[in-house]
Write a protein that binds this DNA or RNA. Structure first.
Lengths: 223, 223
DNA sequence: CGTTGCATTGAAATCCCTCAAGCGAGGTGG
DNA sequence: CCACCTCGCTTGAGGGATTTCAATGCAACG
């Protein structure tokens, strides 16, 4: 899970240094791009939150872990999405590469200065946070009150919408990641998907490649 | 549950109109105070989010409901806490008075203008959102990965800390509210509290009045 | 061709939910 | 004042959804 992050400590711009990173619509700030291999840690819990991150390509997960190893995936971040924005000085969760991916880093101080200078930037920064809030609230309802079928159904519909692949969903993440995101076990996720296939709601050409055959049936599980 | 909110539609300042509402440290904006009776709705899901709210006294809950009636309490807001800040034009959840309470209202437009004019205000507004994020992330871990004991234990410790009542916790909310907050049933909450009392971790002089006798035992349940 | 890392499947166990009854405090009316 | 009701909380018994434990399948890789 945690491979070396030693290279991080040197902070060598891996991309085009000084080139602007389009963090939000109007915030174009200096930064650099780094690549992370599958399962590599991007930052760890309790580490200083000196950067703000944006996924360029690939998929990232944010994770919280209990002392006994129980794990909760807080979010999956797809290309174009921003993460690592924190309230305090430290990260409250860790971030890891689900697949090999490219991530843009912008100094937090630069982001804060931009927000200081431009109310438009400040508003966009606030918008990032409140977008996250909306997502988290929905997810809280899912974790607190939905059963396994509803959780998996909502997950597939959400991924389908976000990846814009029509009825085809390419999952970058493993069953374990999905389970930890949905508050289930890997076995329950697997069984639920199998059952959905039997019910002709989906097709599973391969385990990472899912075809939505009956969105209505999946949506019916939702509120 | 939903008593009349008709009086809301007139928006008569109930407090000292024009007097500043201390929304955050530096944001002192014109607004007014309203009182809500126990279980009265403060605003509803899908209603225009024209105001930002701050609890003056009493306790408020924010709620999301599934079509079949399943309910998730997203948060309990205590005196001094701000709620109703939204990403879009509409509220994504409803807010109700847990107990009789006083709530200050500030026009959203006023808040946005303040954030426009002062980067300090903008930063504080952002801070409100990210504070919520931290809380929601913790709660997500609770809902996704903790068992009934851990959930109730964490809830008691959290309430104890926030109400600053030492080892005494006065619960403003019913078992139903607690259950819907923790993603459990009312019966499980009740049984868990009873068991904690048997284990001498807490005492229950009355059902709304809880004494923490062994914080370590409660905390041990946490990560 | 064995190994390794997921994913699937089955059987048994468990935790929590559901259903149902009882209890106690508070309010109301006779 | 007491009977009566209501509402919220507690308690019990039984059941069910999900987890746990264990085995198997399967594709990728050296």
């Amino acid at each position: 899970m945690q491979t070396q992050t030693a290279e991080r400590t040197s902070f060598q711009p891996k991309g085009i240094p000084g080139r602007g990173i389009q963090l939000t619509e109007t915030m174009n700030l200096p930064g650099f791009v780094m690549e992370f291999a599958r399962n590599e840690e991007i930052f760890g819990e309790e580490e200083p939150a000196d950067f703000v991150y944006k996924v360029i390509s690939g998929t990232v997960r944010t994770v919280r872990i209990l002392s006994d190893g129980r794990r909760q995936v807080a979010a999956f971040l797809l290309a174009g999405e921003v993460f690592g924005v924190e309230h305090g000085e430290l990260h409250r969760f860790s971030a890891e590469a689900v697949s090999d991916c490219k991530v843009a880093l912008v100094r937090r101080s630069a982001v804060e200065k931009a927000a200081e200078l431009s109310s438009r930037a400040a508003r966009e920064l606030w918008s990032l946070a409140t977008c996250d809030l909306v997502r988290l609230q929905d997810h809280m309802l899912l974790l607190g009150r939905k059963n396994a079928n509803e959780r998996v159904g909502a997950f597939l519909l959400d991924m389908s919408q976000r990846t814009k692949g029509g009825d085809t969903v390419e999952l970058a993440m493993s069953r374990t990641d999905i389970a930890d995101y949905l508050g289930l076990t890997i076995e329950t996720v697997s069984r639920t998907l199998t059952q959905m296939e039997r019910d002709r709601a989906i097709a599973l050409p391969t385990c990472r490649h899912i075809l939505l055959r009956n969105r209505a049936a999946l949506a019916r599980l939702d509120s």
